[in-house]
């Protein structure tokens, strides 16, 4: 239960970050850069979308799915083992993708976006939780 509560909380933080970025883009405003000044450089770079859909939209869908799966498990909808396996695959894939996006900011764009880094940190924390949970189950 604690594991799913933690994942749900992290997913909710991710939802709030991505919803903020979608909202500022829709209003054509600059997001508040809490640390640094280069958020707009990253968010307006040519790497900001895939197939015409902005990365933050993918992020919102991803975090919402994780939050929904955690709530399904706690409420008891569907197969717990299947949902846990899907969460593990989703979180691990997202962690690899986030690492790639961090390297992209560091080496290619050479600018840092506070909200993108925060989102990646949330996903890394999720991955640590998933790995810890898997380790505890197998010991």
């Amino acid at each position: 239960m604690t594991f799913y509560a933690l994942l749900f909380a992290l997913a909710s933080i991710g939802v709030s970050i991505t919803a903020y970025l979608i909202n500022t883009r829709a209003k054509q405003e600059q997001p508040v850069c809490v640390i640094g000044k280069d958020c707009h450089v990253v968010l307006e770079s040519k790497y900001n979308s895939v197939l015409g859909i902005h990365n933050e939209v993918f992020g919102l869908i991803y975090f919402t799915i994780i939050a929904l799966l955690c709530s399904f498990i706690v409420i008891g909808i569907g197969n717990l083992q299947w949902w846990t396996m899907i969460i593990t695959i989703f979180v691990s894939s997202a962690a690899v993708l986030s690492l790639g996006l961090i390297i992209l900011q560091w080496k290619i764009i050479k600018s840092w976006c506070f909200w993108c880094v925060m989102s990646a940190l949330v996903i890394f924390c999720m991955e640590i939780a998933v790995l810890t949970h898997a380790f505890i189950l197998h010991v």
Binding site: A9, S12, S71, I75
Partner: peptide, 21 residues
């Protein structure tokens, strides 16, 4: 304000899920 907002949101959503469970 935003830290408080998101924290309270998580609490309410999770309590709601526990109640439905």
């Amino acid at each position: 304000f935003h830290v408080l907002r998101v924290g309270l949101a998580i609490t309410f959503m999770w309590i709601g899920i526990l109640i439905i469970a």
